[in-house]
Amino acid sequence: MTPDFQLEAPLSKRRIVVAMSGGVDSSVVAALAARSGAETIGITLQLYDHGAAVGRTGSCCAGQDIRDARAVADRLGIAHYVFDHESAFRQSVIDDFADEYMAGRTPIPCVKCNMGVKFTDLFRLAKELGADCLATGHYVRRVVGADGPELHRAADPARDQSYFLFATTRAQLDYLRFPLGGLPKPQVREIAAELGLAVALKPDSQDICFVPDGDYAAIVRKVRPEADTSGEIVDLAGRVLGRHRGFIHFTVGQRRGLEIGGQAQPLYVVRLEPETRRVVVGPREALAVAAARLTDINWLGGDRDGPLTAKVRSLAKPVPARLDDGRLIFDAPEYGVAPGQAAVLYDGDRVLGGGWIAETEPAMLAVAA
């Protein structure tokens, strides 16, 4: 199989730079690019120090991953370069992740990584190498419409990564290529096996690569030692129900881990108040949100005023909504909408754009009062 890299023929006179993380997806992209006849160059960003990265699993751009990417490049006979971006990654992604938790928000570091270290820096490197495009292993589709390139959801809904790429700019989309967007993951692994790539059976990386064991609190505590400052757990009326051991252990919508027994009904984290260090809890209906205010909206194209669907969590289903001057209004109350997360807007499969959730408006003002 040779995908369409959407470049003017002949491909033998084109140069493709592939972002190689060391996983099966980007390795297959590199292989397909090389088979197309274009000159292919692999780039890997080192995001961790060599010592800490050795033997790490469930991550990307770490020690073993760099070795895997280099081995694939050697097998394909293409050039491969590794660039040290540990400091930039720590400042723009890990530090931001910790600060967001400290501020009572729920961060999405994968989006920040794509916005900064990965796309911005990879673009610069690819252009310096004279590439005609930058290809990645993301599961999204780039569709050329009447007004230029559009970003669409992947053909395989189970693998779609469009939520994490909403901040891609129009200029970036013009230069990017996503050759796996029309393929299911099993077929990608089959291609890797057919090509004899050693990463064919390599496990997928986790969503948050720098938290391989899922212990977010430990990462935040390491970066911000003051993160364990305790505070009160209160109900919607302000009555103290217990104490918590730090904001970093809670997110909006959370039910487990509150350690406040003896309640008449299940309680959920409704909001976090960084000024008072309080965790506010309430019944499930208190989580219902009527609207959300979005900031830093990135618009990729399409009708702002028409009907759309909005996805407010990576695993949530898009729901009907409308956008009015930065205010996202849901057709029906939506649950699990947390400040710090992203709201990604769609017209069918097309990504219209998205923004960061700054504030939410409760659907039941009487309950929230």
Rank of each mutant, 00 (worst) to 15 (best):
V289H: 12
P266G: 15
C60E: 03
I248A: 04
R56K: 11
Q341R: 11
P333N: 14
A69R: 10
R124K: 12
A332R: 12
T2E: 05
R189I: 02
R14F: 04
A73F: 06
V199A: 07
G214D: 02
P186Y: 14
Q91H: 13
M20P: 02
A363P: 04
V143D: 02
G22D: 01
L294R: 12
R189D: 07
D207H: 14
T169F: 09
R105I: 00
L365Y: 10
S87T: 09
R124D: 10
H152L: 00
L134E: 04
E150R: 06
L300D: 01
D305S: 15
T309V: 02
A363N: 12
R278W: 05
A343Y: 08
R75M: 02
G23H: 11
C209F: 07
Q263S: 04
Y346P: 04
S162G: 15
I208T: 11
R293P: 00
V279C: 05
T44S: 12
G148T: 11
D96E: 05
E150Q: 10
P320N: 11
R313Q: 07
A126R: 15
V337G: 09
I233T: 07
M1G: 15
D68I: 03
R256K: 13
P203R: 08
T168G: 06
L241Q: 09
V93K: 13
L352W: 11
M115R: 12
A192R: 09
R142S: 02
K13G: 05
A264Y: 09
V18D: 00
F123R: 10
G148P: 01
D349A: 08
T169M: 08
T229M: 06
C209E: 06
R278Q: 09
G257T: 13
H80L: 00
L365H: 08
T169E: 05
D347Y: 13
D228R: 14
L352S: 06
T251H: 12
R245W: 02
P109K: 12
R277F: 08
A154L: 00
V252Q: 10
G302M: 01
V319R: 08
S27P: 00
S26Q: 01
F123S: 14
C110Q: 15
E259I: 04
P212H: 11
A98M: 03
E359Q: 13
V279Q: 08
R141G: 03
A310D: 03
V279R: 06
L45I: 11
R90Q: 05
M115N: 13
T120V: 08
R239Q: 07
G231K: 06
V29T: 12
Y101E: 00
M1P: 07
T251G: 11
L201M: 13
H138C: 03
D213A: 13
F166I: 03
A358E: 02
R177M: 00
G145Y: 04
V82L: 01
D68T: 05
G355H: 07
L300R: 08
A98T: 14
L267A: 15
S230I: 03
R56Q: 08
F330L: 03
R15A: 12
R322K: 13
T168F: 04
L308M: 13
E285F: 15
E8D: 13
L7E: 01
H50N: 01
F97I: 02
H50D: 07
R243S: 14
A193N: 08
L308Y: 08
P3V: 14
D331S: 09
I297L: 08
R90K: 15
W356P: 01
T120I: 10
T295E: 09
